[in-house]
């Protein structure tokens, strides 16, 4: 093993600390007393901290969190159902015109969300889908589906052809092959896509604010936005909500860090 100089680690820790300072600051402010909020200079650590912000979250934000969870899970389900078969087809079944579909998927990712939001708004007004959770799930899935197809086709193209041929020789039809061979061996792809679909739906603000801002069920991003928009000066409550809204990101990072990195790279450096 090569020598690993300690000074590199020291620099690394320093750089990471600078990078994560805003995250620390969010936690710090969430624990600060309202009376200390305007103090100059601000307290660098939460001396005589308070959990007031978090009790406000518990009192006011739980329904928003529930909606976000529902929207996130719905988006994951819809994304997987659409993207996994398509990824399999593009990776292994060589459909004629598959290249065009690939290109369309890339172009789809270039459309600004604001353009999509206006289009959806015009359609939802007619269909009566405005302010509904289903409409929001549908809109949020457009962020994840093209990415999901690209990730699945990247992961599934690594499945050895012999495996699929063996299944065919054993008499499995293409649906059987897909269900009992392709999907189980694509576990990592499924995890990666689910992770990103959930995170993006959970974080979405633009679709929520344009398509669901009068709804009875609103996601957590609108909960935070309502605080800021009301010129609320309870910054500990705002930041406590932000901390709670960051929990899924933290959980995913701890449990599934390698899938995150895999997703970023497979999406970008595929060919």
């Amino acid at each position: 093993m090569k020598h690993r100089p300690a000074w590199l680690t020291a620099i690394g820790v320093g750089v990471t600390a600078v990078m994560l300072f805003p995250v620390y600051w969010m936690v710090n402010v969430s624990l600060t007393q309202t009376s200390n909020m305007r103090k100059s200079p601000p307290n660098l650590i939460p001396v005589d901290g308070t959990l007031d912000g978090y009790t406000v979250v518990l009192r006011q934000q739980l329904p928003y969190l529930g909606t976000s969870l529902l929207v996130g899970l719905g988006t994951v389900a819809l994304t997987l159902v659409l993207a996994a078969p398509a990824g399999y087809s593009l990776a292994k079944l060589r459909p004629r015109g598959g290249g065009v579909v690939n290109l369309l998927l890339l172009v789809a990712q270039m459309i600004p969300a604001i353009v999509m939001a206006m289009g959806f708004y015009a359609i939802y007004i007619k269909l009566g889908l405005l302010d509904s959770v289903w409409g929001l799930i549908l809109a949020d899935s457009t962020i994840a589906v093209p990415f999901g197809v690209l990730i699945f086709s990247a992961f599934m193209s690594r499945i050895p052809d012999e495996l699929l041929q063996a299944a065919r020789i054993d008499g499995a039809g293409s649906l059987r092959t897909f269900g009992s061979i392709v999907l189980p061996v694509s576990r990592n792809g499924i995890i990666t896509v689910s992770l990103f679909a959930f995170l993006w739906a959970w974080s979405d603000f633009l679709f929520a604010n344009t398509l669901d801002n009068g709804g009875s069920l609103q996601p957590i991003t609108l909960g935070i936005y309502a605080y800021i928009g009301n010129n609320n000066q309870q910054w500990n409550a705002i930041m406590a909500t932000a901390v709670v809204a960051s929990v899924p990101a933290a959980v995913l990072l701890v449990l599934a860090q390698r899938y995150v990195a895999a997703g970023v790279t497979a999406g970008a450096v595929k060919d």
């Binding site: 300690a6 590199l8 402010v29 974080s203 991003t221 932000a242």
Partner: peptide, 28 residues
């Protein structure tokens, strides 16, 4: 170097946070 994997993982945090969270933190 030692800890480089862990530190690299921590670097992902800003990217995974909801944009709304990052934006409101920076505003404050």
């Amino acid at each position: 170097f030692r800890l480089s994997g862990l530190l690299r993982a921590l670097f992902l945090v800003p990217w995974l946070l909801p944009l709304l969270v990052s934006a409101s933190t920076w505003s404050w």
